[in-house]
């Protein structure tokens, strides 16, 4: 699909799945895009866990080959895939179409500025129970699409997971649903590595 066709489909409610890694996504992505990191092994399973099957989807991969492969995998699995973005981000920007950033903060900034954020954990409940940032709540990645509307974003939400893959997904869903959200880079791996405090249980 050309950038203009993608934009028109977005305005009709289609979701752009950005298949890149979390850092390039945070730096710059199509307005409204959702971050779903690609891999051939379990992309279909993850999309199935996160989104409703009838959601019209457009793939954005860099390089383009990734978008094509993802479109095939998901349409073969029965998803409503409209196509993939031709020419990638470069073509999109050449058309003057809007790109946005996802703000990020690392775990040190999170620790220093705890009161300024609503901390949300994007992992599965069993992981959250085992240990999480004190005071954080859970918005599991598999629930996020359906529950994001209820999220409190005053103060803004800082989303964390083990690494960054599920947190960036949940943050992008929150932003799409009109919430103020930021991504915690480095995730619980960095938090634990620095020996920052941990709270156990379901909070």
């Amino acid at each position: 699909m050309t950038p203009a066709e993608v934009r028109a489909a977005q305005q009709e409610g289609a979701a752009v799945l950005d298949l890149r890694t979390p850092h390039p996504f945070a730096a710059e992505h199509l307005e409204g895009a959702l971050s779903v990191q690609f891999n051939r092994a379990d992309l279909v399973d993850r999309v199935e866990l996160v989104f409703p099957e009838d959601l019209p989807m457009i793939m954005h991969g860099e390089p383009e080959a990734i978008g094509k492969v993802a479109a095939k995998l998901l349409s073969d699995a029965g998803f409503n895939v409209l196509g993939h973005l031709e020419g990638g981000l470069k073509a999109w920007k050449e058309e003057g179409l809007p790109v946005v950033q996802l703000p990020t903060l690392d775990v040190d900034e999170l620790k220093d500025r705890m009161g300024e954020f609503t901390v949300v954990d994007a992992r599965d409940p069993f992981e959250f129970k085992y240990g999480h940032v004190p005071g954080s709540g859970i918005l599991s990645w598999t629930e996020a699409w359906y529950e994001a509307d209820k999220a409190e974003d005053d103060p803004p939400i800082a989303v964390i997971c083990g690494d960054e893959i599920r947190s960036v997904l949940v943050a992008s869903i929150l932003v799409r649903k009109g919430k103020k959200a930021e991504l915690v880079t480095g995730g619980m791996v960095d938090w634990v590595e620095r020996d920052y405090p941990i709270e156990k249980g379901m909070g």
């Binding site: 298949l19 390039p24 690609f38 891999n39 051939r40 092994a41 991969g61 080959a65 990734i66 893959i165």
Partner: peptide, 14 residues
Amino acid sequence: ADFYVLEAADLGLA
């Protein structure tokens, strides 16, 4: 070239 792109992407790497 596509082979390397997809292998790297499968590993979550750009």
